[in-house]
Structure formats: C-alpha cells, structure tokens
Computed example of a mutant assay.
Amino acid sequence: MLQTTNGGGFGYDFYGGNPNLKAERGKSFELGTELKFFNDRLGIDVAYYEKTLSQQIVHQRLSYGTGFIFGLINGGTFKNRGVEIQLNGTPIKNQDFRWNVTLNFTRLNTSVSSLPADVPEYYNSDAWPYGNARASAFVNNLETFFPSSVAAYRGLNWNYYQRGMGSATAIGGYSYQRNNKGEVLINPATGLPLTNANFLPIGDRNPDFTLGFLNSFTYKNLTLSFLLDIRKGGDVFNGTEMYLWRNGLSLKTLNRENPVVFKGVLRDGKEDSENPTVNTIQINPVARSADYFSSIPESEFVEKDINWVRLRDVTLRYQVPSGWLTRSKLVRSASVFVNGTDLFLLTNYTGADPNVNGASAASGGVGAGGFDFGTISMPRGLSFGVSLGF
C-alpha cells in the first residue's frame, strides 16, 4: 500500500493475504411451534435450534518476519444449541380491567471442538481487562495439551474446572497447582501456594438460563407495566476486588497482621503419594506483602453461579379520554407517563453489579461480558413525559 510518511514508497498492509483461505461452513437445524388456546387468552411459542460453524475465518497474529501483523486463516469448529420459549397470557380480561403476561425463557450452550491452528485456547485480546484473566474459548480435549494440570482437577475440584472446558464463553486465567487429589501445592521454601504457568478455564460466563417477565395491568385509562430481568447461573470475574486485594485496599486485608497457613500440601516430591506433607508454614502477611498478596491467582476472584433479579423497567401511563380531545383538530390521542429503570437489584454477587462488561460492544462476539474491573452499577433512572398523536 502507498505510504504517506516521509520518503513515500510502498509497504505491506496490516493484514496479510492467504491464498489457501476457504469459505466458512455452516449447518443449522431449527424446530419450533406456536400454539394458541382459549380464544388467544393463552399462547406458547417454542423453538429449539442447533448451529455448527466450521472453517471459520479468523484473524491470527503472524510472525513479524512475514511483514504483516495479522493474517486470515481457517480454523475452529463451534456448535451452539439452545431453546427459546415464550408464554403469553391474559389471566384477567373484562370491561374495565385487563392483565397481560409475557414470559421469555432462553437457554444456550456452546461446544468448541477445535480452534484455529489447533491451539488449546483462543482469546479476545480486547477482552483482557485486568490481570491474567481473559475472555477465552477452550477446546473440550484440554488433557491432550495439559495432561498434568488437567489430571489434578480430577480430584476434589474437577467440577470446578470442567465448567469452562469446551466453552466459547469461558474465563481463562491462572489457578493453583494441585496434586492428583486436587489439593493445593505449597512451595516449601516460602509457604506460598504455587500457580499454574498455563492459562486454563477458571469459569464460564454463560448463564444456565435467562428469564424476562413482563406484566401489564390496565384499569380503564390507567396502565401499569413492569419488566423483571432474571438470570440464573454464570460466573463473573471480580477484577475490582482483585485490584483492591493486591493493593491492600480490600476489607479482606484488614486481618493482615494475623499469621496465615495456606491449606494444602508441600511440593516436596511426596505430593502425589498416599501421605503428602501437609503444609504448616506460617506467614505474616504484613511482613510479606510484596509476595503474599500477589500469590492468590485469578481463579480465586471468579465468583461462581451468579444470579440476579432486577426491575429493568416500570411505567405508569394515563391515556387521556378521547372525548377530551374532540375539540382539537390537531391532536388525536394523548397520554402522560412516569417511567423508572433499574430501580432495584437482588443478587448474590459481592461487587457493584454483575451485569458488567470489561470492554465495549466493539470487541465483537460475546465480548467481555462477565468481567468486572472498575465498573459501577447500572444507574437508577426516572423520567416523565407526554405522548401525543396527530
């Protein structure tokens, strides 16, 4: 491409070409039905779908010796499976009063069979907000790549580890080294826990399911409607808490003058035997702040199975009777309303708000949803207005 810098001339573009690039392949299947009962007083819409993508075209970082930064390559096979259910009902309907209900249920699972260039992990570089935790996709056969690390999780923590295996919405990061029983390995020279050198799944951001629950009550000209947003499951990386911990600002560091003994076994050659050496080394955090607070890996700041119920929207509206507008030739309809958004949140998350994103929507894909670093909670909103129809 033409260079606009001093001296001019021509140079390579940022992206390199690939003469062997193939078209992406997709295969999908969907089955659904829509049913109505009781003169449309009850309705159900159900859809189940599967979609498999292979030979996906992705950007791969190249050796600078090629003259390029990124190149397009084929690779990766993903399979999405999900179900969507919508229920519509009118439990009460008479001359003056009407109650409408809409319930939306969504469940989605992903499975990663392979990744570009046969790597074990593929991550979004725009979704690496803080520390060594990032938005990752892991293949479902990680034992091929990290046999010793994966085998350790088949002890006490196999279910904890398995959550992110084969998922396109995993959290990749550092975690404790463990023996074949799943016990944390301790450095006998320092008394501090040892950390894996490889990025492994430490969580999965994908929820078990989500629900949207919309209610609308109408009495004559007055209507009250509200929407509840419900999520069950899914993990959140609390990078804010990790930052506070590592800088001695977290409330959990107030006991720093108390001696600590990390629960685990020493890595002294006996860690995988029938009688490993239990750790008894005491550490004084206030005297070891340089290495003590940084010895806790990212996996310990992933909060598991986060649920929430939030009042996403509530509106009270009064429709002006049409008889009041008969003298107006311009205005045909009018209403006044008061609206509130995100008025309350119930959650088991310890941070400000579990509905977080460590990057912008421009990061693409599932982005950095589920990464909390310096994120404030959704603000409460209150507005009122007048709607006119001409």
Results as ranks from 00 to 15, higher is better:
Gly264Lys: 00
Gly358Asn: 05
Val278Ala: 09
Glu24Ala: 15
Asn100Trp: 00
Asp229Cys: 13
Thr4Ser: 14
Gly182Val: 03
Gln56Ile: 05
Pro201Ile: 03
Gln162Thr: 08
Ile283Ser: 03
Asn284Gly: 02
Trp324Cys: 12
Phe384Tyr: 14
Phe217His: 05
Lys22Gly: 07
Ile376Trp: 11
Ile230Arg: 10
Thr77Tyr: 00
Phe301Met: 03
Thr110Met: 04
Gln282Lys: 14
Phe226Trp: 14
Arg246Lys: 12
Ile202Gly: 01
Asn132Trp: 02
Asn355Val: 13
Met165Glu: 05
Ser111Ala: 13
Asn180Ser: 14
Asp313Met: 10
Val336Glu: 07
Pro297Ile: 01
Leu211Cys: 09
Val338Ala: 15
Phe29Thr: 08
Tyr219Thr: 07
Asn206Ala: 14
Leu249Thr: 00
Ser136Asn: 03
Gly155Thr: 00
Asp118Asn: 15
Leu53Gln: 13
Gly389Glu: 08
Ile296Thr: 10
Ile306Glu: 04
Val58Ile: 15
Asn74Lys: 10
Val260Met: 07
Gly370Val: 08
Tyr153His: 15
Asn179Glu: 07
Tyr176Glu: 04
Thr223Gly: 04
Ser175Pro: 02
Gly71Trp: 06
Pro19Asn: 09
Asn141Val: 06
Tyr219Ala: 11
Asn279Lys: 02
Thr240Arg: 07
Asp235Arg: 06
Ser322Arg: 11
Leu227Ser: 02
Thr33Trp: 11
Phe105Tyr: 15
Val320Asn: 05
Val366Gly: 06
Gly264Cys: 04
Ile44Pro: 04
Pro276Asn: 04
Thr326Ser: 13
Arg332Ile: 02
Ile186Ser: 01
Arg107Asp: 07
Tyr161Met: 01
Asp313Phe: 08
Gly65Phe: 10
Gly166Glu: 11
Arg107Glu: 14
Leu72Thr: 09
Ser273Gly: 14
Gly239Arg: 04
Leu251Val: 09
Thr210Asn: 13
Lys232Cys: 00
Glu271Asp: 09
Asn140Gly: 13
Gly385Val: 08
Pro207Leu: 07
Thr169Phe: 13
Asn355Ile: 14
Trp324Gly: 12
Asn307Glu: 10
Phe29Gln: 11
Val331Lys: 06
Pro129Glu: 11
Ile296Glu: 01
Ile73Lys: 07
Thr277Arg: 02
Leu227Val: 05
Asn255Asp: 15
Val83Phe: 10
Leu185Asn: 04
Val386Pro: 09
Asn348Ser: 04
Ser114Trp: 04
Glu271Met: 03
Arg98Glu: 13
Thr102Tyr: 02
Leu244Gly: 05
Leu31Asn: 08
Asn6Gln: 13
Asn198Phe: 08
Asn20Thr: 08
Val184Ala: 02
Thr106Phe: 08
Asn221Ser: 15
Ser383Glu: 05
Lys79Leu: 06
Thr315Trp: 05
